[in-house]
Design a protein around this nucleic acid. Sequence first.
DNA 1: ACTCATTCGAGTACGATGTACGCAAGTGGG
DNA 2: CCCACTTGCGTACATCGTACTCGAATGAGT
Lengths: 247, 247
Amino acid sequence: MSDEELISIWMRPERTERSGPGRRPGFSREQITRTAVRIADADCLDAVTMRRIGGELGTGAMSLYRYVPRRDDLFDLMYDMVLSEIELPEKPSGDWRADLSLVAHGSRAVGLRHPWLTVLASRRPTLGPNVLHVNEFALGALEGMGLDIDEMAGFVGMVNDYVDGATRREIGWLEEARRTGMDPERWKRDYAGPYVRQILDSGAYPLFGRTVRESKAVHLPADEAFQIGLDRVLAGIGAQIPDIKRG
Amino acid sequence: MSDEELISIWMRPERTERSGPGRRPGFSREQITRTAVRIADADCLDAVTMRRIGGELGTGAMSLYRYVPRRDDLFDLMYDMVLSEIELPEKPSGDWRADLSLVAHGSRAVGLRHPWLTVLASRRPTLGPNVLHVNEFALGALEGMGLDIDEMAGFVGMVNDYVDGATRREIGWLEEARRTGMDPERWKRDYAGPYVRQILDSGAYPLFGRTVRESKAVHLPADEAFQIGLDRVLAGIGAQIPDIKRG
DNA sequence: ACTCATTCGAGTACGATGTACGCAAGTGGG
DNA sequence: CCCACTTGCGTACATCGTACTCGAATGAGT
């Protein structure tokens, strides 16, 4: 792995099903990735160290490098792996709102189940098979409606951007609390609380104050708040789709 | 810094303008933050190490801890500092499209000038003064139009989500190329190119293929592509605003 | 059955990181 | 002038990714 092997991980198929000489592999890329995901879920992304993964697999850190060229590539694999949890029908149904909602809710669920996902999403783009598959389905939902490919991609992008942003906001503080090792209650009371109160008391940001005081969405179940925002995005898209096939 | 001083950085005012005994501070939080920003701009976020900052300031790493409690807090300071580059008038103009466009273009410009910003944005939320100020202006753009605060925040969120996502996409591969130390041309040719071609040749993702082949937006100047997407988002919002004050 | 190229597992080692700790040097109020 | 207090900074430690290395395992060719 030391020479000029700077190739996308997706073009580096795992060496398996081989029938030559040499010792048989004792692990697999998929197994290592699954372990890494479990660690990230349980602790956080920073806890995903090569030594830790090796430890959980009963081996050393360096053994993993037979399967994964670099740690960053492992992150790509993790990202793509959890996207496979989004369950989609084979083909879009023809109801674009329902189809895009499916993608949106699926993406959100994955993001909540794996809070490190949004962090990886902003690091570097990756085009694994599952990313491509979800993207393909989403684009397919808008096919045959008289839109050109840029419009389709634009609308899909709007939905994705909303989902990413909303999920990030939803996780946000909660994850930060966990990362600092405080329980969320204590964190809210001792860390964020006093500062927010100071902002409110300063009176310098009245509209921010209103979002804290008057917001009904804050007290809504997160699912409902997400749905309301998603409806807003879909309504915005719907208003721009030519009447031909408006749902 | 070792005991229970787990407090938001924004509630930890720098000890300055003091008139007691003791040596005078030789640096400042602002100076350290500015240096950190410069390093991140020139190299990347990972290059922002305490030793490197200290080096550029002609001192050691540990000296910085007199001004910044933890490295993560320094990231919060960096984030908030560059947001001050967004120039906004004192009050929203009354034309909500123009005002939100101002925020959007400003945010994008900052994101492009400091490509590490989107990475920090996804790490943990921060409520520095400049973040609050920009947010206040954006909310103000939608004030007095018969919207409740949740709707206002929702629409502002949509714009922010779009800008974040679009900027991320715009930077994305370019930054990844820089991070691996390759020049973008070579990176595109040797790293991404072959893989994208493989995807296209596989024929498994026809719509992805169309986004690569038929897209006109790809060949558009980035500014225009951003503007088109922004117009889409604003149009979506406009369609949902009661007619009272529709622009 | 023996050989041997080939592959895997894993130990060692290196440079780098954040930061806890401790102490010398500088400084203004009594 | 003294002394409590603050800052600057060197040392030290645990931890990280990963380059390098070598013995052990393995199957094809003879």
